[in-house]
């Protein structure tokens, strides 16, 4: 189960992570709907690009730009949050959405918690694999903490001061 477009849905994607002994070039990617690490994609592009229903995930120290010419190959891109306090994923999402023009599913994976989901949604995530030990219904509430926001981001192309008429001076 994941949260997608503000509802809880069944999910049949498998997030594939490298084991300790695996190397990106030689690891065998299982069949089916798999989200592979960026490194595996880069090492096995020739084999993988013929598959349909492939996803890729970026670690927080990887860069959205590395997917630049490949973005069309994926029906889902995920960004991993190794710890919820590691905020690099927000900038990765920003780049994917606003610089690379990615419009498909953008999924937050890893240490994904309710209290960060509002910000995640703003920078362009539309799917959240909230941490397994947390109640998904509760997590869903995190997406509606605020009705207004000051800045432009992926969800609002304009900052508040261009979006609406604001109150004036005295």
């Amino acid at each position: 189960m994941i949260i997608k477009n503000k509802t809880i849905i069944n999910d049949d994607w498998i997030v594939f992570r490298l084991g300790e002994k695996d190397t990106p070039g030689s690891v065998v990617v299982p069949p089916g709907k798999v989200i592979v690490p960026l490194k595996v994609w880069q090492a096995q592009r020739d084999v993988l690009q013929v598959r349909t229903g492939l996803g890729v995930w970026l670690a927080s120290d990887e860069r959205a730009e590395d997917l630049k010419s490949d973005i069309e190959n994926f029906s889902v891109i995920a960004v991993d949050f190794p710890k919820f306090a590691d905020g690099r994923g927000y900038s990765i999402a920003h780049h994917l959405r606003t610089r690379l023009g990615y419009t498909g599913e953008l999924r937050a994976i890893g240490d994904v918690l309710r209290d960060q989901m509002f910000y995640m949604q703003r920078v362009g995530f539309d799917a959240f694999a909230a941490r397994a030990d947390k109640d998904k219904k509760e997590a869903l509430k995190g997406l509606s903490d605020f009705s207004f926001t000051y800045q432009a981001s992926s969800d609002e192309k304009l900052p508040l001061f261009r979006r609406i008429q604001r109150g004036g001076g005295l």
Binding site: F84, A85, D86, G87, Y90, S91, H94, Q116, F118, Y119, M120, R122, V123, F146, T149, Y150, Q151, S153, P159, L160
Partner: peptide, 14 residues
């Protein structure tokens, strides 16, 4: 102040 308040990209800086 308004720009930096709850800026979604910059709440978890290094």
């Amino acid at each position: 102040r308004q720009w930096s308040t709850f800026h979604p990209e910059f709440a978890y800086l290094p």
